[in-house]
Design a protein around this nucleic acid. Sequence first.
DNA 1: CACTTGGGTGAGAACGTTCTCAATCTGTGG
DNA 2: CCACAGATTGAGAACGTTCTCACCCAAGTG
Lengths: 359, 359
Amino acid sequence: MSGSVRRAMPSIEIVAKEAGVSTATAGRALGGYGSVSRKSREAVLAAAERLGYRPNSLARSMITGLTHTLGVLVPDIENPFFSRALRGIADAAHERGWEVLLVNTDEDLTLERKALSVLTERRVDGLVVAPTDVADRDALQAVVDAGIPVVLLDRRVPGLEADTVGIDNRAAAKDATERLLKLGHRSVALLTGGDEKLRDKLSRPGLRGVERLAATTVGARAAGYRDALVEAGVEPRPELVSAEGFRRADAAAATRRVLALPDPPTAILALDSLLALGVLQALRGLGLRCPADVSLVAFDDADWAEAISPPLSVVAQPIYELGAEAGRLLLDRVQGSDKRFTHRRLPTRFIERESASSR
Amino acid sequence: MSGSVRRAMPSIEIVAKEAGVSTATAGRALGGYGSVSRKSREAVLAAAERLGYRPNSLARSMITGLTHTLGVLVPDIENPFFSRALRGIADAAHERGWEVLLVNTDEDLTLERKALSVLTERRVDGLVVAPTDVADRDALQAVVDAGIPVVLLDRRVPGLEADTVGIDNRAAAKDATERLLKLGHRSVALLTGGDEKLRDKLSRPGLRGVERLAATTVGARAAGYRDALVEAGVEPRPELVSAEGFRRADAAAATRRVLALPDPPTAILALDSLLALGVLQALRGLGLRCPADVSLVAFDDADWAEAISPPLSVVAQPIYELGAEAGRLLLDRVQGSDKRFTHRRLPTRFIERESASSR
DNA sequence: CACTTGGGTGAGAACGTTCTCAATCTGTGG
DNA sequence: CCACAGATTGAGAACGTTCTCACCCAAGTG
């Protein structure tokens, strides 16, 4: 019976008493600051060991003003993009002795606001935020004004005083679209995953609309898609652009819809890997083969992209690096960097496999 | 210019002064405890609003002894199993007003120990741990002894005073194996993902070995696989059991190895979905078709399992529920539950699709 | 010898809350 | 007018650290 003695954790004062020194000296010995004689240090360390002393980081934070905690806000931790990015953030944080307080915002603006409030009260030293599509700029700016540096991941919020890390969405989408065009496809569908509002904006032509749109991630990719078509002299067809939700079932439905059009697309560009799954599912259901009947290119190099038949051609983002870079940037700020705000764009890589073939 | 006034956050004392009351009264008004006159409350609330007051939860925690924080330790946040379970935990926590401090242990025992130490110092109110395979029982027990309740997720640690949540791994694996046997397969390979040590134990026959093995998740599944074979009168063949690492490439290599045997398996049971991807990749490389040439059944109903060709037959775990249940169990303990330790087993579900067919 | 130097030490303040307790105020009944 | 219950209030302790400051002492230095 090593019978769980569950006594309250001893404070530094108890340890000091046990070692026969003052709390100040005990603090110095345990904390490794100031100067302590060898004799005192050994007495204190021995006493601490004997009593099972563990410092209370809450009390320490009150004094030092640092919690050594980074808040991380993501819309959906189950999305492989965010779980991988989170890993990058967490690794960067651990490397420098920080921990991560995670909140899932579920793409819900109310939850996001609430989380910002809670994390402010917890006095996190900084915040990595992948905002919801319609992010609350004022709520975020309020955090910044409270002295908590913010780094935006993947998505941008115009006018916010914060560093951002992401890819060049517009260029990446343009490149992917161009590859499909070069393979001879003249009719390319775009699965955005966004909602109706986005769809309205997309179908309303004119540079103005496209520019405004390019502020969001999905919008920027849609703009790149459009860029490629226009440059290649292909008339964009609004009915080929789908924005009917970002679940797999939504993508399957959207796929069935565009393929039922009078002049159906011969290629599809899906803006994330979950949407691509929906496309594959729909194709199977329709008895169509990829790439023989329909070519497919998707964003994000998912685990399964290489293993399935046919292996999927993708636009790969350096997801882990995006997270790690966001973490590093944030910690630089936390540790006092006063540089101008940077907007870091990491390079993407097109991985050609077998899901897109020439027509 | 709304020029970021970055003044330090005001304390309750400043608010009290501004409102013309004592800190005690201000505290009552803001914290909603004790009794305060309408007039005082309104004055305090107005002052707080004006000054942008945000309570400091560190100070609060020092007094109340509650951080309203749950520590979560997972081996790999990128693994869909854990990211989904994490979501369950986080949702359960939020529901009751708790936050989640996340640490990735990377299957590294040293990191796990370090994390336990850090989270203890941070005075988390409780801990959900998915331990590494060779978990350090003493380190975990030390946490429990420090008065921090622990709930184990997915994996068990013999002798630890903690609740556990998981599935009946042995029964689930036995069921999956039986289904393959019923389809007429006499030669079924098992991809465990574990390492050499596990393989040694598995190849050493005898009830004793199997029983000891059943303590870990992988071990229990291996035992279930063996149970099914033995009951069906099929002689287990050690060379059909692979334990060569849990990365996709490892699984692919293992698949090639077993298929090159003189009497190759006609069916494969993969103990997680990443391993299944490796199998599919290897089959493609060998020009073999699934299920015509080789049947495949895997643990975990991954996103892509239904969308690929052929759709994968799987043993589905209620992953989200496992996490949520762990969170709830832990919060019950945090809030003073004194019940005996429970070991909750949630039911699994076999989803029959098209990757396993009769021989 | 007087005077500096600097390691070592302890008392007590500080951080920002909540809690305890006694004092004051208010209104009511006798 | 007095006694009394109950609401309201403020002073100050408490939580467990780190930090500031003044002090002591031994070892040089002139």
